[in-house]
Amino acid sequence: MSLVIAAVGFGFASAAVLCLAALGFTLQAGITNVVNLAYGTNLTVGAFGALVGETVFHLDIWLAMLLGALIMGFVSVFLNRAVIDPFIRRGTRHFQMMLVTFALSIVLEYVVVLIWGENFYSYTGVPSGVLNIGPMSFTSSQLLIMGIAALLLLVMHTMLRYTKLGKALRAMADDKELARGCGVNVSRMTDITWFLSGALAGLAGVSLAMTTSSFSEILGSNYLLVVVAAAVLGGAGEPYGAMLGGLIVGVVTEVSTVWIPNEYSDVIALALLVVFCLFRPEGIISGRVQRSEEL
């Protein structure tokens, strides 16, 4: 039993990363209606952005993390303006659009390889030290990441729920034309959404890189489908769902390692994804009436 509780602890740690990533994924999926296969490499770019901060600018790891997030935020706006939005405007849809993002992910990943090679890296300034809470044990960086994630999710929640900007973003995800009719500046909001989602991906990427011993160019692309699993579980395009999905997928995969080998823990997340695609593509919470009141 204590094994399970310990695994739940690990689950919270990985859920923290996953919630950030899934929220970013779902924000852009909500307004573009595109499954962005390049999103995984966004995490990679964020992680390497922080590496630049640490090695080139000699930043503290947390400032480097911020730099990684900012870089990825701007890269994300650029990618949308330069590639994704033009394709959407032209009327490219569904599978072809997915292929566009597939191509984009290949390009991004190998730009990273071009600069950094296929080598393994790790940050130097990751704080060590372990804290035990009952049978759960956390490294101090895990705790800090969980803190950052919790804080950010709270900020995002407040923003989406109570501010005019947040309501406009959600309205746009629902119906872009109607939002335009209400006077929403759709192109600016689109930029903001892509920036936020890119920055969240960047943060998640740095956090992911910090919690693994070393990372390489495949950091994010290997993680992509787990993120998609969390987002689909929560109902694609649903910000709160993504947070919940991240929590569920994170905890379930870690707890599953009590019984099945570690290497297969991703398989659990992916199996969940397939099951949800097949039987409940609208996600867990969609359809529940009072959801928005509860949150």
């Binding site: 309501k167 959600r170 309205a171 629902d174 109607l178 929403v184 009141e293």
Partner: peptide
């Protein structure tokens, strides 16, 4: 806007 509450819909009307 289907995923917004009634109140939020009205607020969007007065954006």
């Amino acid at each position: 806007f289907p995923s917004l509450t009634v109140e939020e819909n009205l607020e969007m009307g007065g954006y």
